[in-house]
Design a protein around this nucleic acid. Structure first.
Length: 587
RNA sequence: GCGCCUGUAGCUCAAUCGGAUAGAGCAACGGCCUUCUAAGCCGUCGGUUGCAGGUUCGAUUCCUGCCAGGCGCGCCA
């Protein structure tokens, strides 16, 4: 419908151009949007206002001319000029009703478009270090990333959902060492756990399972571990130096093979836990990309060498630097340390190089807002390696501040007093968690009220939408209970002219809008639009259902109304599906 | 100090890539259940869109400068 109206406007504009009323060198596609208010018809275009200046005519006068030159279309009831020069289209009722048929026909595919045209797009999200369970901050990235991926897939993109596993580097060594120390405790050693170690209970669990698997094979005495180590922070020393020395000692005492065994036990245990957590949250991945696999394939070295070949790497103060300032970064960045080890950034250069080499047309990174300073250097690297930085989009997700009622929930990662995603899911449920996370724009700071999310009351917007779906399901059960009234779509679609109520028109309009909302969400990577849309749709439904009886005696009218409700239910289900929220049959 | 994000009703947030009279929910107050689920509906109350300029037919949206909050500015990850 929308497309054909745009075509009409193009026709009309061409006619005026041929007449010389509008400069012929203008080549623009008319903007047509769904009217905000019913009094302005169904669709509105600002074409006349845009053309007014170059044509040196008043917008309203131009609008009149455009309307007069408009080819006729049987679906259009009338076209009017309004306000400063809007061209408002009024569509005939049967033009509206056809959407009900479309929804019933396309079912789960209704709302899907071919915006992406099969383009390959990668969405990388969460990618939290596997040093502990996911917390509620990661949850928002998970919900957002999953929805973005779903929406893109619905719009015809070939989507790869990816998690970058930082399974190399110092933090992981700290984790391995932490597990080992707990393991030694299980073996009966007494020791003072380092300030900078990971203190969570999950570390103790990992130590116990390690002990179960290997017995005392990795056992060393506490004396041999702590002998002549630099003092820890609490003893007046440097806690960083202390933990680094501990890691080194651990590696020395265990040897390469045994250390790897320990390291992988921690890594695999936590990665499996994260994967299970996300899976239970309805977040699925196509690929868990290992950082370690980059160094094992010498990909980091190769990526840096590629920069060297372009003359973008130089030596200074013992380290090697990438001249990222040449591509807009604030300062140049170290890629290889004095001791020869590559930096985290170097691995990320290789990773992004790898992404582009895999042939993705677009790459979307979902990062926590605290990483925003990192964007310019990654873009610089991408560009330096000869890739189009425009094809890399970084979306920042702000943190959620948790509240219990009006009281703020305090969290700190180090002390282990953070709330995990799992705890959140258990407390408020997956549906509420998913919905609350994506209800807000990603870059908006968000207040997440646990009390509200778990309240099984009308205050909770998740239930409001689910309830609309369940109500329709209930109505259909009642309908199907009697064979004489069973819903017959083919027959019902012949009866749609029965839908003459104002509120029925509004509901149909609302349904017709859905594909545009999905497409808009895909274009802007803003799934919150869908959450808001669903609340609007549910609201329109509740209003209608409260004011008009659907299961009336008169068979034709009943069939038409049921068809409308079935269509509403389908759209609710499709939308909730994109958000990863259940559409219950009963509540 | 520099950079990024945010600032909209008492609270939490929307506002269709610059559109018409800035909208919901919650909170407050008043109504609607012998009828398809009251987890619902209807009504009332609520605004100088942080402030000041600019761009234009038109600005919550774009630009500049201030103010306030958050985050970042490592050979950490």
């Amino acid at each position: 419908m929308k497309d054909s109206l745009v075509a009409l406007l193009v026709e009309s504009m061409r006619t005026l151009q041929a007449r010389g009323d509008v400069p012929s060198d203008l080549d623009l596609t008319p903007q047509l949007e769904r009217a905000r208010d019913r009094q302005f018809g169904d669709f509105a275009s600002n074409l006349a206002m845009v053309l007014a200046k170059p044509s040196r005519q008043s917008p309203r006068k131009l609008a009149e001319q455009l309307i007069n030159a408009l080819p006729s279309d049987p679906r259009v009831e009338r076209v009017e000029v309004a306000g400063p020069g809007f061209i408002n289209f009024y569509v005939r009722p049967d033009g509206h009703h056809s959407t009900i048929g479309q929804v019933l026909d396309q079912a789960a595919a209704y709302g899907h478009t071919n915006l992406g045209a099969g383009q390959h797009i990668q969405v990388e999200f969460v990618s939290a270090n596997p040093t502990g369970p996911l917390h509620v901050g990661h949850g928002r990235g998970a919900a957002y990333g999953a929805c973005v991926a779903n929406v893109l897939a619905a719009c015809g993109y070939e989507v790869t959902r990816e998690y970058y596993v930082n399974d190399a580097g110092r933090q992981m060594d700290i984790l391995a060492t932490s597990v080992w120390l707990r393991y030694l405790e299980v073996c009966g050693e007494e020791l003072s756990f380092p300030d900078n170690g990971y203190r969570g209970d999950y570390v103790i669990d990992l130590a116990k399972s390690l002990h179960q698997q290997l017995g005392k094979r990795l056992h060393k005495s506490a004396e041999s571990v702590f002998d002549e180590l630099p003092a820890d922070g609490r003893d007046g020393g440097d806690k960083e130096a202390h933990i680094d020395a501990l890691i080194k000692r651990c590696q020395q005492l265990l040897g390469k093979t045994e250390y790897r065994l320990l390291f992988d036990h921690g890594l695999d245990g936590i990665r499996a836990d994260i994967a299970a957590d996300l899976e239970a949250f309805g977040v699925h991945y196509d690929l868990w990309f290992s950082e370690r696999s980059l160094s094992e394939a010498d990909a980091i070295e190769k990526a840096i060498e590629a920069l060297v070949a372009k003359g973008l790497v130089y030596q200074e103060a013992g380290a090697r630097w990438f001249a990222s300032t040449r591509f807009g970064d604030d300062k140049d960045r170290v890629v290889q340390r004095e001791d020869g080890r590559y930096t985290y950034f170097a691995a990320d250069i290789a990773y992004h190089h790898n992404k582009f080499e895999r042939g993705f047309d677009r790459i979307v990174n979902v990062w926590g807002a605290d990483h925003h300073g990192y964007i310019p250097r990654v873009r610089a690297a991408v560009e330096a390696l000869g890739h189009d930085p425009e094809h890399l989009q970084v979306r920042l997700v702000q943190f959620a501040i948790l509240y219990r009622g009006s009281e703020r929930v305090q969290m700190s990662t180090r002390s282990g007093s953070f709330i995990t995603l799992r705890e959140l899911r258990e407390e408020v449920g997956n549906d509420a968690a998913r919905f609350f996370y994506v209800l807000r724009k990603a870059e908006q700071h968000m207040d997440f009220d646990l009390e509200l999310a778990k309240s099984q009351s009308k205050d909770n917007p998740v239930y409001y939408i689910q309830y609309a779906h369940a109500r329709i399901a209930s109505m259909r059960r009642k309908l199907n209970a009697d064979a004489a009234t069973t819903f017959d779509p083919a027959y019902a679609l012949e009866q749609l002219h029965q839908l003459t109520e104002e509120r029925e028109q509004q509901l149909v309009d609302e349904i017709a809008r859905y594909p545009e909302v999905v497409e808009h969400a895909a274009r802007t990577l803003e799934p919150h639009l869908i959450a808001h849309y669903l609340r609007d749709l549910a609201s329109h439904f509740h209003v209608y259902y409260n004011g008009h009886r659907v299961l009336v005696e008169e068979a034709n009218l009943r069939a038409a109304r049921v068809a409308l409700c079935v269509a509403v239910q389908q759209v609710l289900r499709n939308g909730l599906d994109l958000l990863g929220v259940q559409a219950p049959e009963r509540m």
